[in-house]
Every structure is written in structure tokens, then in C-alpha cells.
Simulated scan of single mutants.
Amino acid sequence: MQSTTDYSAFLQPAFARARDLLERRKTERQAPIVPSSSVSGRALVITVAIMTFLASLTVGAVTLVSETAAEWQNDISREITVQIIPREGLDMDAALASVEEVARRTSGVAAATRLTDAATSRLLEPWLGAELELTELPVPRLVVISIDGDDPPNFDALRTELQAAVPQAELDDHRAWVSRLVAMANAMILTGSGVLVLVLVATALTVVFATRGAMAGNRQIVEVLHFVGARSEFIAEQFQRHFLRIGLVGAMAGGGCAIGLFWGMGLWTASNQARPEADQISALFGSFAIGWVGYLGVGVLIFFVGFLTAFTSRFTVLKQLSLIDMLSPVEN
């Protein structure tokens, strides 16, 4: 059986080289434990870029939906409408005048304006065609009431007073539409947040496997440094720097592409307002601009992905080194 002295003499050259490597790293800049450029590193950069691009699209979409829903809600809450159903023997002009009079003397009402025949015809033109004669059809007439947002009127009292003056009048305060818009926006925001969390979790898991692969590729160096006294934090810091660089490069590439896409869509909708496609997009999402809040959210996401990559790598290395300590034989 080989003696302990012979075994120590056998390992002494390897230990000496490892200690020399540690000393030289303290005094001068050396090549890192993990190669700065490799096929797996470039693949991870692309993966992080794709994940960040998808996460940035989610952040922008959630911001866009939230801001657009708020604009819809504000626009609807500033106006209510009164619809007068035509009946036989009803003097429509007198009914419209009565509704305007009741609305204008109500506290909290800023203005009351009837929709003219020309405006009503334009609203019905896509379905009933041009040159529509309103007198020939039982078309309801509308009175648009602008309300004071700081001091809105009592809608129930206003509805009662309007029906007393004109029984055919129906007040629509758009509460049902507002509640549906808010519910839809909240559902989309919740769904987008869930998608964002899943993308970030997938990114972290990808970094875990990449870190384990990097440790496996540099196993001899890592184990020798660890066994000759290098602190686990020192080894983890080498991997952390490597993956922080990868994470930031990939995140900036993916986030930059997402910002360019939103900026380009905003320019396209702004310069093509006359086209039907742009009109439909503008009707749903305004100018398709996410605003400074959305761009700030994407910027925060870029740095978050970078630091998430570094933290995940550090945690994985420390976990693997602790397993090496547990599996290492204990000297008697």
C-alpha cells in the first residue's frame, strides 16, 4: 500500500501549480476560468436575446393595453348619451329640445348637444348607404351630454327627470361598457404578467443548464482550485462575471429589437392614418406607441435579465461546489 507521504509527494506538483495560478491571478490579469468566447456562449447569447425579446413584447403589450383602456375609460366617462326612440305622433324636434333643456339645468352637466341629421346619416352610412332620409325610417336620435369629471351629476336622478319629460328617452351612462373594458384590461394584464414570469423562469433554467455545462467543461480546473483552498465565492465570481456579460449582451440585443419594433409600428400608424389597416389599429391601440412608461419598462427588464443571469449562475456554481464537498471523501 502506498504511504501517505508518497501520495502527498505525488500530488504536490499539481497543488504547487494550482497555488501558483491563484497567486498570479491576484497580481495580474489572466485568462478567466470560463472561456470568454465559445459556441455554447454564443448560443446562450442568442437564447437570452430571444427570451428578452419575447418578455419585452409582453411588457410593451401590457403597457399598451393598460394605457389604451385608461384612455377609453376616460373618454367614455366624460360623455353620456340620451337616445330617443321614435314613436307614432312624437314630435322629435320638441323631444330633443326638452332633453337638452333638462340636461343643461342639471348640476354636473357641462354641455348637451343633439346629433344633427347629417352626423346621424354619416354614422349609419356604412350599413344603410349614402343619402339616407331619416324621416323615412324609425331611426333613434341621440343627444350627447358632456359631464364634469370632477363633479358628475346624479345619473339616476337625471334618468328619472328625462323620462318624466320625454318618456321615449333612454339614458346610457356607459357603465356596462366601462366595466367590461376594465375587466378585459385586467384579464390581459394578468395574462401578460403570467407570460412574463414564465419567460423569466425559462431564462433562469436555461442559465442553470449552461452553467452546469460550463463547469463540466472546466471540471479539472474548478476541482483543483476548490481543493487547494480557493473559496467557493471566488470560483462563483468567475462564472458570475462571464454570465453577466452574456446576459447583458443578449438582453440588450433582444430588448433593442423590441424597442425598434414598437417604435417602427408607431411611425407606421402615424404616417398611414388614411389607410384602413392603420385606422383599425389606431381605433384599438391609438397610435400604437407604448410611451415612456413602456420604454422604461423594457429598459428595466434588460438590466433585470442581465442580473438574473449572473445571480442564477452564481447560485448554481455554489450549489454544485457544495455537492462536491458533500461527495468528497473525508480524511481520517
Rank of each mutant, 00 (worst) to 15 (best):
G294T: 07
R212I: 12
R159T: 14
R104E: 13
F303N: 02
Q280S: 13
G229M: 13
M252H: 09
P126Q: 01
A310F: 07
A49T: 02
G89N: 05
A274F: 09
L21P: 00
V228R: 00
I84Q: 04
G250T: 00
D93H: 10
H174V: 01
L190E: 07
G254K: 06
M215E: 11
E23Q: 13
A111V: 06
R29M: 10
A253D: 01
S282W: 00
M265Y: 06
I76R: 08
L296I: 02
G254R: 03
L181M: 11
L205I: 11
A216T: 02
W127E: 08
F155L: 14
A187V: 12
I324W: 10
T106P: 03
A18N: 09
V139G: 06
L115V: 15
G108F: 01
I85R: 08
P329L: 11
V201Q: 03
V139Q: 04
A283R: 13
G291S: 05
V199Q: 02
L308E: 05
S8M: 14
L308G: 01
F262N: 03
M92V: 05
E28K: 14
A43T: 10
R275E: 15
G129T: 09
S271K: 08
T5N: 08
L261T: 02
G41H: 05
A43V: 10
G194H: 07
N154E: 09
R29S: 11
R219D: 12
Y7M: 12
L134G: 05
